[in-house]
Design a protein around this nucleic acid. Sequence first.
DNA 1: TTTAATTTGTTCGTATGTATG
DNA 2: TCATACATACGAACAAATTAA
Lengths: 280, 280
Amino acid sequence: MTRQARSHPQRVDGSGLKPVPAKLGSDDVSFRPIRPVRSYERIVEQIEEAIVEGRLRDGDFLPSEREMMVQFAVSRSTVREAMRVLESNGLIRSRPGNPNGAEVLGLSTVALRKTVDRLVMGRRIALADLVHFRMLMESSANMLAARLRTEEDLVALEVALEDMQAAVAADYEAFSAADVRFHGLVAQASANALIQMFNDVVHDVVLDMIASKIAVSREGTSMMELSLQHHADVLEAIRSGDARRAGRMAREALFECYSALLAPEDCTAVKLLLDACALG
Amino acid sequence: MTRQARSHPQRVDGSGLKPVPAKLGSDDVSFRPIRPVRSYERIVEQIEEAIVEGRLRDGDFLPSEREMMVQFAVSRSTVREAMRVLESNGLIRSRPGNPNGAEVLGLSTVALRKTVDRLVMGRRIALADLVHFRMLMESSANMLAARLRTEEDLVALEVALEDMQAAVAADYEAFSAADVRFHGLVAQASANALIQMFNDVVHDVVLDMIASKIAVSREGTSMMELSLQHHADVLEAIRSGDARRAGRMAREALFECYSALLAPEDCTAVKLLLDACALG
DNA sequence: TTTAATTTGTTCGTATGTATG
DNA sequence: TCATACATACGAACAAATTAA
């Protein structure tokens, strides 16, 4: 009952490279430790490379698992392990019954977000760190935006501000959405992909944290009014091209917004940062 | 020859929760879309949670796959998919033949690093962005360090500087290692986990990029001499507690170090940042 | 030093639920 | 409705690596 001739002919995994016993005698020949490369990793590499290089774009579809099993000359399980890794890195998405195969999502920052989330949950990063960092990012972004903003940027910011105004005292959801858009536009105007990315991530995390701390509904009208005024001031500074003022306004707005959430000692620490920077 | 009674008694995958047909009639009842939760994800969740909460620490070992297969009541394939995800997120490490099972690595930032690497490879992030961002981070870190540094920090920085001095004109490897240590100590003195983390990652990426651009050996003695002087200046500013000077020195040091690698137009853009900040 | 036991890496076959035409 | 192709999941077996007796 030998279900089949179990030959495993295509066993070509990279671990065939055994560490060479360094019996050459001379001391000046040194070898580095070998980490066996597993089959699924080489599949991940190939697909990841294709996505990074743009040969696979957002919206494309991977071949089905059975098809890849043939193309990569591995078993289905191995293909699936690679799929799981790619999926957890936010590069693809697969769902059962999809005749197209897994969908390519392109490059994203979801893995980055998950990492920060874990560090926050694990108490490696405190709320004060997040607020502090966001003040740095936001003030830098606003300074840059004040210098680099185009007319289109100003128009878009104006629209976002008007949306906030329209939603004040009425629709917190819409207000919050416009708020997020405003900050995104500033980050975009700063013309630095990293500032944009990291600030986005930290902004999201902070919003999640405060959402779990205080009920959203408590964010009353007066809070929104105040926030609106802050944004208007910032936009005015950006429009005038006064980088230092834009940076200062952004920092102070954030501080007023979040200082109530911080422990007193953290609050003084953040104030200390403000003084140390003394940017404005 | 039905090898065995194929019963699949324990088919308990989470997708059993079908989306409820919203036939309640009233419009004010709204349901959110359901994403089927797969078995391996629930395993990942449990283990991830244990690591984040500290019940599983760095150096601990997971049960063997066959043991987990019993504990989670799933097949080995499912356990393995979960392991691959955890491993790709840098939370565990498994190697063949290890009788202890997979090793727990604790929280790390390797996923963060991989994400940034991909974005750089995919041209979503330019070298100018990296240098620019690093100047922001480094100047902030140095300003904070000037304010917050303890005596221990100063001693450690002093030691790192001396190591750099000792290695100048002799050992590039040792010089570079001491250099990295110096920057790490500054970030640590800044007392903000996010600055530390992001600066670390970006620092690494930049080093990799320039290493692939110019041969390391070209980094001659004069370059090391210059770098040494910069670090000495920065340390002096940190010691004196002059935050603005520390920030300015750090920015200028970075600019002198990397401006040669940037395209002329990027160079002027970064200079523009320096002017816009006008911190010192 | 060799051997035996255990573990991970990998493969194959099968069954089941799901989505599309 | 049905057939088809897909992903999810299970289980058994083999291969290779590691450790300890």
